[in-house]
Structure formats: structure tokens, C-alpha cells
Design a protein around this nucleic acid. Structure first.
Lengths: 251, 251
DNA sequence: CTTGTTAATTGATACACTATTGATATATTG
DNA sequence: CAATATATCAATAGTGTATCAATTAACAAG
């Protein structure tokens, strides 16, 4: 008998709800903050208001959102209690002592020809000939923790500049580029830090003999898929193992 | 239906139901995922919709499926049968070229006093004064890939020997120790390989300059929680980054 | 500075419409 | 009873628009 593997996507409102739940859980959407208006948000996501409202209803049922007519929708992040039900899994960088508020400093944003500049071993993604290459520093509690190179597709009509990019790229993708991430795969290994690593960055790390001579750091390759299941973002991250570690949890 | 497998055994709908139950059990059909529509699925299986629906009814009665008219059929995996140990697990080691059949060779199993031998920085776990320390080699497609140290609680009446651990550890936990793993947290970083690494193991790795001088490998600390949400297993894994990598996936 | 009114914004509700999907019923063949 | 095949019903998903109700911001009057 043939196996019946074919699966389907979850309903759109569920996927949106889960995406927002993850962003709340990760702190990308801060506790107490107000979401954009439903009309605007629906427009950014490219869905009807009714669909978005279904997603928001599910968030309120999970206790992650408070909705006030005439005022707005407010993020509510309950203490560890109810979270157990809503959070299944996540991956992130965190400080060795745990946690850490993530921030980032963009070093460069460049439109580059994929054939010429994109990593040879990287995956195919997007339809344009060019891609945007974003390089940035990542900090946790203001401590230099990792450097990162991110690739997204660069169609003719898409433009990205350093000023556009806040700490969370996901918010930028959703609000400006009209796509959002519904699935990721991380491959974690070790690697030498790249030649473009800022000198000040590497120097600020301790002088331990463990990794100093060869600058061998933790290394993450991430493939992120959007709502149409296309590879929308490819990133490479080198993290300093004396400062941070990669954490994955599943419940 | 004229496939070779269905040779006058059980009714077709029972066979289909059992096949799907196996796939749910194995994690091929993940908890929460949505099946293809009944019409499409029946077509793929080469059976009539009515037959498929009988099979789905049986899954519903076993509690493995939730059916929602107008929306879809959703996999529901009861907590009792949730276990992380499937080849489709979202957190795993794999070969650099992808995949790899995991096997293991146990080096030692010892009952040791926790206070004396358990890693100082490790977490509290269990109630007994002793713990079992299991050390083993892990292979992927028979290729040496990682070494691993695992700790589980060692109450007075619990006994573990090398012979017990031929198969999957999770299977042993479940069948002999009466607990099963429902959640894990992995912390991934880099570290020197421990002094008990078998010489033959380390030598077999390539002579690349990347990690040869300091033997800096990928390093995973895993905390595994059982059905009562207690820390039931704590493991430390060193993996050779020239052979394997750690992979995490969501969605 | 406070107060009251007005206008704009925002969430809530309702409805129309299309498409998909599970549920039900029936007829037919072994 | 098992299985196929077909038609029809009912619930959900999603888009789109209009309207109501609560809140907020703006502003003029005192």
C-alpha cells in the first residue's frame, strides 16, 4: 500500500495566530505594546480583516492579547503559567546565563548579484537575479554575541536600506515586504568567523585559549520559509561560544 | 485496490486506519497537522471516499484524529503516546550531507554518586543520591559522529546494564523504566572533547587544521522531561563538525 | 489649566458571496 | 457487510463592504 503522506497547511488564521504568538513569546512584540490597527495590519499581511480577527481572537483565548474597542489590541504576556499550553517550540540565541534582550546593529545592506556573491553552498531562493545581503552585529543585553549575514530576494521594485531595519527583521518583512515567516530550519555547527568580522567585535571577546587562536565559533545556517512555503530568507550566524549559545526547545 | 499488500487479510478500511495510526505514532504525521481533504486523500490511496471515511472514523475513536466539518481533519496525538524519539524528530544530529541512520555503541554504564561525579554545572534532577552515567559512541550510517554522556536517576531498585541499552534509549526508558520523554531543551555550543574520548574515535577524524589542534567540537547539552514534567535525563554530546551537524526545525 | 464638544480612529458586528471540506444519504456491485 | 460511486447538505475559510459603538485626539470656550 502506498503511504498517504500528503498533508495540508493549517488554516490561514491559525498560521497568523501562531506566528504572532511566537513573536510575543520571543519578546519581538513587547508586553503591553499596541498592535497596528486591524485594518492596517490586515493590509500588511495581505488578508481580509475578518481573517485577521479570527487570528486575534485565538490570541485572546490564549491570554496573549487584550482587545479594547475604540482603543486597540494590546499584547499581554502572562507569566510562565498558561504559556505551557501555547508554546510548543522555539530556537534562539541566548546568553550563557540565560535569556538576554536581543538587539542588532546593521553593518551593511547591499544589492548583489546572486550568481556572483551568494554563498556557493547556499540554497536556491527567490526569483530575482539579485539578492539583498544584510550584515549585522547581534547583541544580547548589549553584549556582543554574534555576527550575521542575511540574504533575501531583491526584485527590481524592492528596496531596503539600513534605516529601514529595526532590531527585528521579521517585523520589517511583515510590514514592508508583505511576507512573514511560518517555518524555519536551523543547522548548527562550528566554523571560523568570516573575514569581514569587525576587528573591535572579535577583540572584545575574552582572551581564553579555547577559541582565540583560530576564532572557531558556533555557526548557524537558517532557512526561513514564508506563508507560501517558499524559501524567503537565508541567514548565516557566527556566535561567540564564550558569550552565547543556541537553544532549542520542544514540548 | 489491487496492491500486493492487501491480500485478503483485513478489511481495507482497517488497513488504512492502521497505516495512518502507525504514521501518526512514528511522527510522520505530526501532532496538530492537517490531513489532505478526504476526496484528495481517497484519490491518492486509490479508494473510495466512503472507505477512507470509515478508516478516519476509527482513528477518531482511538483519539488520534479530530474532524471538523468545513475545515479539515487534524492529527491529535494523546499525551500518553507523545514521545520525542522518532526519526522525524525536529531536533537531531544528521550527517553534513543530510540524514543518516543513527546507531550507538555503549562504552560504559555506571552507578555513581551524584555529588561526587555529576557535572558541577549540570542541573538538579531526580531524587536519588546516585545516578546512572552512560557513555556511548553515536554513529550515523556507521560513521563515527559523536560521543555522549547521559545521566538518569538511579533509585535503589533501578538497575541498568550495558546489555539493556542495545536499542533506542527512549524505548528502554519507556518499556523498562516506565517513563517517556515529552519535552526537551537543547543548548548548543562548542567545546573541547572530554578526556575519555576513545583514541580510535578521535583519530578517525580528518586531519583538517580547523579543529585538530584543540579538538573543538560541537557540543550539546540536553535536558529531557518526562510525562510528569520532571527532568528525567540529562545528556552531554560532543559531535564532530566535519561529519555531523545539529538540526532543528519548526513547521 | 480645565471642561465640553467635535472629529477621527479603532474594534465589533452584520451581511453577501465564493470556494472548500466534512457529513449524510442513496444506489450499485460483489 | 465491504466497497465503489454519486449527489446533496452543512459548516468552515476567506474576501469584501458597510455600519455601529467605544475610545482617543483635537480644539475651542471659559
Amino acid at each position: 500500500m502506498k503511504t498517504a503522506l500528503s498533508k495540508n497547511r493549517l488554516p490561514l488564521h491559525v498560521e497568523i495566530s501562531e506566528m504572532l504568538a511566537r513573536e510575543i513569546q520571543a519578546g519581538i512584540l513587547a508586553d503591553g505594546s499596541r498592535l497596528a490597527s486591524e485594518r492596517l495590519m490586515a493590509d500588511e499581511l495581505g488578508v481580509a480583516v475578518g481573517t485577521l480577527r479570527k487570528a486575534l481572537l485565538e490570541l485572546t483565548q490564549k491570554g496573549l492579547l487584550e482587545r479594547v474597542q475604540g482603543s486597540g489590541n494590546y499584547v499581554r504576556k502572562p507569566k510562565q503559567s498558561q504559556n505551557i499550553d501555547t508554546i510548543y517550540s522555539f530556537f534562539r540565541l541566548e546568553l550563557l546565563k540565560g535569556g538576554g534582550l536581543p538587539t542588532a546593529q546593521v553593518l551593511s545592506v547591499e544589492r548583489l548579484n546572486k550568481a556572483e556573491y551568494f554563498p556557493a553552498l547556499g540554497p536556491q531562493f527567490g526569483t530575482a537575479a539579485d539578492g539583498f545581503r544584510i550584515r549585522r552585529l547581534r547583541r544580547l543585553n548589549s553584549i556582543n554575541s554574534a555576527i550575521e549575514e542575511i540574504w533575501i530576494d531583491a526584485p527590481k521594485n524592492r528596496n531596503v536600506s539600513v534605516e529601514d531595519l529595526s532590531d527585528s527583521l521579521y517585523l520589517f518583512y511583515r510590514e514592508n515586504l508583505k511576507f512573514w515567516i511560518t517555518g524555519v530550519e536551523d543547522q548548527v555547527s562550528v566554523n571560523k568567523i568570516p573575514d569581514w568580522t569587525p576587528i573591535t567585535f572579535a577583540q572584545k571577546t575574552s582572551a581564553s585559549s579555547l577559541n582565540n587562536e583560530h576564532k572557531i565559533w558556533g555557526y548557524i545556517e537558517r532557512k526561513s520559509y514564508d506563508q507560501t512555503n517558499m524559501l524567503a530568507e537565508y541567514s548565516l550566524t557566527w556566535f561567540n561560544p564564550e558569550v552565547a549559545r543556541y537553544v532549542a526547545r520542544i514540548k
